[in-house]
Computed example of a mutant assay.
Amino acid sequence: METTFDAVVIGDANIDLVVVGCDEVPQPGQEVFVDNMMMHVGGGAALFAVSLAKLGLQVAFNGVLGDDGNGRFIRERFAKYGIDTTMIKTSTVHNTGVSIAFNPDKDRSFITYAGSNLELQVDELDLEPITRGRHVHVTGYRGRRNHETYMAFVQSLKEKGVTLSCDVGWDDSGEWDSCIFDYMRHFDVFLMNETEALHYTGSDDVEESLRYMSTYCSHVVIKLGADGAIAMKNGVVTRQSAYRVKAVDTTGAGDSFNAGYLYGYLSGMDVVTSLQYGNVCGALSVGAYGGSTGTPNLDGLKAFILRHEAEAAVSDAAM
């Protein structure tokens, strides 16, 4: 079958209501005034899809939205960036999910309604339109709670000849079950952050965790936040420092990193360049409110790199 999309993204989409300048949750009967409230597209899969589309790849989204104004808002934002929405189902049961984020510039707190995202069942998805993408990014894995279902799903996708990536996210069950390592075997690129990697492997050393996971997947990437990122591909470890920027909203920084990294991967670039692109997207993401508002297009990404290289050259010359 001829491919239509560079990537199909499967997972959650919701509204992020970002509350700026709220240092406390109101007590009963109390009203708290804040600096601002802003509405953005949210959900890890949706933020990744938008960020990847902004870089110029042809992206399709597969998920469930409510038949409401919030669902239409998300569809409109997807359309703005050329994201195909024909695989999105409309719920007749739930409204579109909403997540309220407090203190986006530091220790964030959330109130979340999952809404229509609860209806996404990968064992009910039609593989034919999904495999019109040459690559599929899968989210929503939740350990033992849906391990067998997701294993069957990704096995079926691999049999169709697509490449696969995954970002597992935080395990809210607290189990950090080792069944994830069998799941990793089916992926071409597997991403997680440092805290998740240490929990899953039971190690206190990120490079040790990376080497352990690489016995299951040949291409693993671990995000290190302000310290950048580290990857291991085919036995070779590569580490890349982060860019220093002022953060106003850390929501979606990891998803933006994923987009930059996978843009590099899907464009045939080496690990060093992919890590650099991931770090740029993560850095620019935190500089604006909203999980994908600050993520760049390709020209913006390259301009950011050139500017930092020029600044580094001036700094070196002054020493």
Rank of each mutant, 00 (worst) to 15 (best):
G115Q: 06
A114Y: 04
G44I: 05
V236K: 15
S165V: 03
A253P: 11
V41A: 06
V286D: 05
R145A: 10
L120K: 11
K80N: 05
L298S: 13
V8I: 11
S274T: 14
N14L: 14
V189W: 14
L224E: 10
P296E: 07
S285Y: 00
A288L: 08
S51M: 06
D23V: 12
F102Q: 01
S274G: 02
F110S: 11
V162E: 13
N146G: 02
L224V: 05
L210F: 03
H94I: 00
D299T: 11
D68N: 04
G143A: 14
P104R: 12
A253R: 03
G133L: 08
L55N: 14
I10W: 03
K89D: 12
T215C: 05
G21C: 05
V19I: 14
I10T: 09
I15F: 13
I305F: 01
S178Y: 04
D299P: 00
L284K: 09
S209A: 06
V280N: 07
E311R: 15
V59M: 03
G133P: 00
V245Y: 01
N36Y: 04
D16A: 12
R72W: 02
D67E: 14
A53F: 03
T149Q: 11
A13K: 05
Y216S: 14
A231S: 15
K80A: 11
L65D: 03
D84Q: 10
R134P: 01
R211K: 15
G42R: 03
K158W: 07
D205W: 14
E196F: 13
G11E: 11
T4N: 06
D6G: 09
